[in-house]
Design a binder for these strands. Structure first.
Ligand code: MN
Ligand code: MN
Ligand code: MN
Ligand code: MN
Lengths: 220, 220
DNA sequence: ACAAATTTTTAGAATCACCTAAAAATAACC
DNA sequence: GGTTATTTTTAGGTGATTCTAAAAATTTGT
């Protein structure tokens, strides 16, 4: 499989996990920052290789083998991200770009050994789950901060937007994975939220709240 | 720079360090297992980018920037090989193939950090010197075993052929880098050599002797 | 239901990296 | 020095991946 094919599979996988159902040509083009016509070309090729189910004008979905391949690439991507943070002291905003390259390295043994070196991590530096060697994958139980009710509590377990800009913003405001967050109040006006985090109080915009995932604490 | 361009630069660099002078199209084609016509194509492209000095029919050589680029790739290749052996327990016969992929990963910070993690190694698992960050490079002082006189001694410091087949053969016969070797006798008939290595005596063929590098001990 | 807007596909072209077959230049030999 | 052999380049073509522009299909709105 070529780098390009791998990138398309990954994009289709990620899109499948957002909106339900079949994926549109335009959605892929946008996600990958290419033209729809290029996407159509590639979908034909992927379909020929039985990696996607594709019928003209009907949208596309991954086949079993396509899904398996996508998960293998995501596994590599996320393990490399962990490696970069844990072993090479990169920050979580720096690793994605490099992992985009490393995910295409082809060696089963390499990725097995890396997994072992890292102690079989279950999540990457952004809180995303790392697929298993045999394609096991389940999303973790999480909720957007923006969807939490006033009075709700939880632990910060992930980010939706993992752009460097957003991650650096979180660093600056001392918001990190593993921290306890409580919703104190919501502003009707702009949907911004007053939260308690690490003893401090903070007002976060709706933009921010809708890009932070919490694992909600059990309500009594 | 594309992967292919990088591979060509590397090939030209390696050829320059063997026979002296300018490099022929055919030599590159053979080294890279492609056709001479493909090489000509690429030489034009590399020349356009000022990475090589190329005039039709006159052979080719690296420019200053071409040489610098080649060294950067070789540095990456060899650092990754060290990483694979030191951190992921690969054997020296397994690492080259994977490093062929990893050498194309593009991140200065990554390679700096890797260098630090590994303790700034000077040599790769095959005894080849690792170029410095700023293009410093000097070959180590070494001599082929086959060129050593009877009675000569030295430490095994490298291999010329670093194919998996040869390396596994060396493992099987307990020949490893760092070992003391003494030439006991040469057979006129087939140029095979009786050597002492690690207390044992061994008869090695000319083929083998001409692929093992020693650092000759000071003769008195 | 039909026109307009949007999405998607086709057609045609460019670039990269490779190939084969043929032509041209250079080197080797007598 | 002229013929042969070898090396190297050109010419032309293929597949992969992208693009733009135009055509076709689908969806939306009235
Ligand atoms: Mn990432
Ligand atoms: Mn991630
Ligand atoms: Mn190598
Ligand atoms: Mn090596």
């Amino acid at each position: 499989m070529t780098h390009s094919e791998e990138n398309y599979l990954k994009a289709i996988f990620h899109l499948s996990r957002q909106g339900t159902g079949t994926i549109s040509t335009n959605a892929i083009a946008e996600q990958m920052d290419t033209k729809p016509s290029s996407v159509t070309d590639m979908l034909k090729r992927l379909s020929d290789k039985d990696l996607v189910n594709y019928k003209k004008y009907q949208g596309v979905s991954l086949t079993e083998t396509g899904r398996y391949s996508a998960l293998a690439i995501i596994r590599k991507h996320r393990l490399w991200e962990v490696f970069l943070v844990e072993k090479l002291d990169f920050t979580w905003d720096e690793v994605h770009e490099i992992a985009e390259q490393l995910e295409h390295i082809n060696s089963e043994k390499l990725i097995d050994r890396l997994d072992t070196l890292l102690g079989h991590p279950k999540f990457d530096p952004h809180g995303d789950p790392i697929p298993g060697k045999n394609g096991e994958f389940k999303e973790r139980d999480k909720e957007l901060l923006s969807k939490m009710p006033v009075g709700g509590k939880g632990v910060c377990v992930g980010v939706k937007d993992s752009s460097a800009t957003f991650l650096k913003f979180l660093d600056k405001n001392q918001i990190a994975l593993g921290q306890q967050i409580e919703v104190l109040d919501k502003e009707e006006f702009d949907n911004s939220m007053h939260i308690r985090i690490g003893g401090e109080q903070l007002l976060v915009s709706h933009q921010i709240a809708s890009n932070l995932y919490l694992k909600p604490s059990e309500e009594s």
